[in-house]
C-alpha cells in the first residue's frame, strides 16, 4: 500500500516506492478510465489514436526498443510532449486539488471514498477474472462485492478485507496479456498517463464491460450522468492524492520519462502474472565487468 508519510519516505529507492506507484497507477489507469465519462474517454482515446496514426508516418527508423525491458517506443517524441503536457496540467490544477483534499478531508473519509470507488469497479474486475479463467479471483471478487455493498454500506467500509477475502485488480489490458496479446508501442495518453496499445484498447473495453455505463434510472434520467461525473471527479482526486509521494519520487529521477516508461511496462507484466516473479528472472541480467574491455558496448538496458 502507498501509505508513506512524506517524512518517512525512503529517499531514493524511492525508485521502489515510485514503482509501487506505478503499480498503483497502472492498476488505476483503467480505474480512472472507468471513472471517466464515456464521451470524454472516447474522445481522448480517439484523439490520441488519430495523433498516433499521423505520427506513424514520421516515426524514425532508429531502434526504438529498450531491449532490457522490451519496451517499444517509436512515438517517443510525441510521448514526451504529452508527458510534458500532463505534467503542466497536473502541477497547475490536479496536484494542488489533491494536496488540498488530503489536507482538508480526514483519512477515514478519504478511505471511505476510495472504498466506494473500488467497490463500484468490482463488476469489471469480476468480468476480467472470468475472462482470464481465474475461478478463485472471480469468486473472491464476487464475494467482496456482495459483502462490501451490503454489510459495508454501499462499499464505504471494506469489510471483505477484514474478513480475509483477497482483493484482486484485473482489467481488460491484463486479460489481453493473459491471452497472449503483446503490449505494442508505449503510449502516454493525455491526462491518463502511461499506457500502450494493448492497455489503451483495454481501457475502452473495460468501460463497455461496466454495468454503470449502460444503466438508466427511470425515476431520474439524469442520475446516471451525475454518477458518472461524480465518479470521474472523485476518482481523479482520490487517485492523485494517493500518488503524491510516488510522483514526487518519479520527478526526482535522472530521467523521469524513461523511469516511467520502463517501470510502467514491467509493472504491467508483473500484474499480468498476478504478482508472481518471472519464471527465470536472472536469465538476462547484464555483465558488470564488460566495460573494462576496450571493445565493450552497452548491455542494452538503456539503448533507445
Amino acid at each position: 500500500m502507498l501509505c508513506f508519510g512524506v517524512t518517512d519516505r525512503p529517499p531514493y529507492v524511492d525508485i521502489y516506492l515510485f514503482i509501487e506507484v506505478l503499480a498503483l497507477k497502472a492498476g488505476q489507469a483503467a480505474h480512472i478510465c472507468c471513472l471517466q465519462h464515456t464521451e470524454v474517454i472516447m474522445k481522448t482515446v480517439v484523439s490520441a489514436l488519430i495523433a498516433l496514426t499521423t505520427l506513424t508516418a514520421c516515426a524514425t527508423t532508429q531502434d526504438t526498443t529498450d531491449t532490457a525491458s522490451g519496451v517499444s517506443d517509436p512515438f517517443e517524441g510525441f510521448n514526451r510532449n504529452v508527458y510534458a503536457f500532463n505534467e503542466a496540467v497536473d502541477k497547475a490544477a490536479i496536484e494542488p486539488v489533491a494536496r488540498g483534499y488530503r489536507a482538508v478531508v480526514p483519512e477515514p473519509a478519504r478511505d471511505g471514498v476510495h472504498n466506494v470507488l473500488t467497490n463500484i469497479r468490482q463488476p469489471v474486475v469480476f468480468a476480467n477474472s472470468m475472462l482470464q479463467g481465474n475461478a478463485q479471483a472471480s469468486a473472491d471478487t464476487f464475494g467482496r462485492f456482495l459483502i462490501n455493498s451490503t454489510i459495508g454500506v454501499a462499499g464505504i467500509f471494506d469489510v471483505a478485507s477484514t474478513l480475509g477475502v483477497t482483493e484482486h485488480n484485473e482489467d481488460f489490458g491484463q486479460t489481453l496479456g493473459v491471452w497472449g496479446v503483446e503490449p505494442g508501442p508505449f503510449l502516454v495518453l493525455p491526462l491518463l498517463g502511461p499506457s500502450n496499445f494493448r492497455d489503451t484498447f483495454g481501457i475502452a473495453t473495460d468501460r463497455a464491460l461496466d454495468p454503470l455505463t449502460w444503466t438508466e434510472f427511470e425515476s431520474d434520467p439524469d442520475l446516471d450522468d451525475h454518477i458518472a461525473v461524480g465518479r470521474t471527479v472523485l476518482g481523479l482526486i482520490d487517485t492523485r492524492a494517493r500518488l503524491i509521494e510516488p510522483i514526487e519520487t518519479l520527478r526526482s529521477q535522472p530521467e523521469p520519462y524513461i523511469a516511467l516508461r520502463r517501470n510502467y511496462s514491467s509493472q504491467r507484466e508483473a500484474a499480468i502474472r498476478n504478482g508472481e516473479t518471472e519464471a527465470d528472472p536472472y536469465q538476462d541480467l547484464p555483465d558488470f565487468d564488460v566495460y573494462d574491455e576496450e571493445s565493450a558496448e552497452g548491455t542494452g538496458a538503456g539503448d533507445q
Binding site: 525508485i15 509501487e20 532490457a68 517501470n263 509493472q267 498476478n274 541480467l285 548491455t299
Partner: peptide, 27 residues
C-alpha cells in the same frame, strides 16, 4: 554490484534502472 527490490512480482534492479536513465540523459 546490484540490489533488486521485489515490488509485487516486479524485480527492480537499481543499477540497471540507473543505467537506462543515465544513458538516455547522455544520449
Amino acid at each position: 554490484v546490484d540490489v533488486a527490490l521485489n515490488v509485487n512480482g516486479n524485480l527492480i534492479w537499481l543499477a540497471i534502472e540507473q543505467q537506462a536513465q543515465f544513458l538516455s540523459l547522455l544520449d
